[in-house]
Design a protein around this nucleic acid. Structure first.
Lengths: 233, 233
DNA sequence: CCCGCGCAGTGACTAAAGTCCCAGACTGCT
DNA sequence: AGCAGTCTGGGACTTTAGTCACTGCGCGGG
């Protein structure tokens, strides 16, 4: 048993999909996986391509997105290590519905479609796990639809800021402080809008006294005031 | 064996989810199903409620939708007889992500969550079928996101008209003729906008000479011209 | 040191979306 | 016939989104 195999089995065991499997089972599966490396900005696959296997992220981040004819992007998900990517086309046999790009150097464990399907037939509990994971994905998509359909860019930005403040914010004398995790452009892609509106809305919130903005450094001076804006208007 | 049971087994056999099962298996499952009736406009379930079982449509149509605080609706899917509704929460245990309403009198076969999950453990091929169905659902959601994020109301309406013309249109001397399947309000809910914009955009297309509109009766006079509008602008 | 490049901020403008409101047509019911 | 309810058409207006073009900053490489 090589070091590589042990490593892959470890990775597999840490994914939500396979976390309940025993050590021997993980090693069996590991013999079937291929390790793939991607540089920052490299595509794992493109929208419309046929899907031949399951990708599991061992290291790095992967962004799932759609591109419009005019060049705009809509991010559907950002997946982290331990998560799987594009589980669904593996089962329904259709092409990838969106593209996937490594946003930092990434290491991927790849299992062929046939192997994984066969594995699911032998281990129904894995199939149920897949359904669970897919359920979470579907909920996120419904959430995106809800936001796009019902809310303004301003509200979506505020809601994103509040989430960031909660998950990454550090309290300081001036308020809750954190860094934007990406460029305005990328944030715009996630919120389904354009760069300029991110910039303008941030400035507007600053003018209203709710935030201090210094490039990507954000200080939320009035969390309550900010979340109040989600209800009204 | 009662007439009712025979009927339910038939219904089950016609659903995409269970179409591969043998007669005896269908009958076994049928003993576990409950028949439910819903009047037009009645809710099968509401967003946020816990999900205790799988709904299979025997008769009637069911509309899946989200409601905003301000009262707007976004339709996620319209399901027909033979289709199942909300397969996913059955597996991930979470609440319903959206509400479901019978848009005409409907008859539903209901299988409890525990029974269906148990059944999937015994019949992994059913679990894989579920994954397939869910895959199609996910693709549709991604399609909705794409439309909301990248296209204008006008383009979404045109694309909806073209689909209707293809599926239900009848060629006549004046062009391709068909009826809108629902009110402007309902169409607006499906396209993620408001009634007025549907009305106005239809009138605008008529003024441009591409359509003849008489309430719900539509005559597409220039199919090519209409589809050309999807590319440009 | 300077050049190029990617990112952020901004002004001016256009277009699209949405709101409010009312009038008229049609349907079904009494 | 008359009434209530639903649906469509449309006028007038406000707000939001998006586009285009330009400025300026900061950083890394030649």
């Amino acid at each position: 048993m090589t070091a590589e195999r042990i490593d892959l089995a470890e990775v597999l065991g840490k994914t939500a999909l396979l976390s309940d499997l025993s050590q021997p089972e993980l090693h069996t599966l590991a013999t079937r996986t291929v390790r793939k490396l991607f540089n920052t900005g490299e595509l794992l696959f493109s929208e419309g391509e046929p899907c031949n296997g399951l990708h599991i992220i061992a290291r790095g981040k992967v962004r799932i997105f759609k591109t419009s004819i005019s060049g705009r992007e809509q991010v559907l998900a950002v997946n982290m290590p331990g998560e799987s990517v594009a589980e669904l086309p593996v089962f329904d046999g259709g092409p990838f519905p969106a593209s996937a790009m490594a946003t930092e150097e990434a290491e991927i464990a790849y299992i062929s479609r046939r192997d994984f399907q066969a594995y699911c037939m032998d281990h129904p509990e894995v199939a149920l796990k897949v359904l669970k994971v897919v359920g979470a994905r579907l909920r996120r998509l419904v959430g995106i639809i809800e936001e796009l359909s019902f809310t303004t860019v301003r509200q979506r930005l505020i809601s994103a800021l509040l989430k960031l403040a909660e998950s990454e914010g550090i309290g300081s004398s001036r308020g809750v402080e954190f860094q934007l995790p990406a460029s305005h452009q990328e944030l715009a892609n996630q919120l389904g809008t354009v760069r300029e509106l991110i910039s303008r809305n941030l400035m507007r919130l600053q003018a209203e006294g709710l935030l201090d903005v210094d490039a990507r450094q954000i200080v939320v001076k009035d969390m309550k005031g900010l979340s109040a804006l989600l209800e009204s208007t």
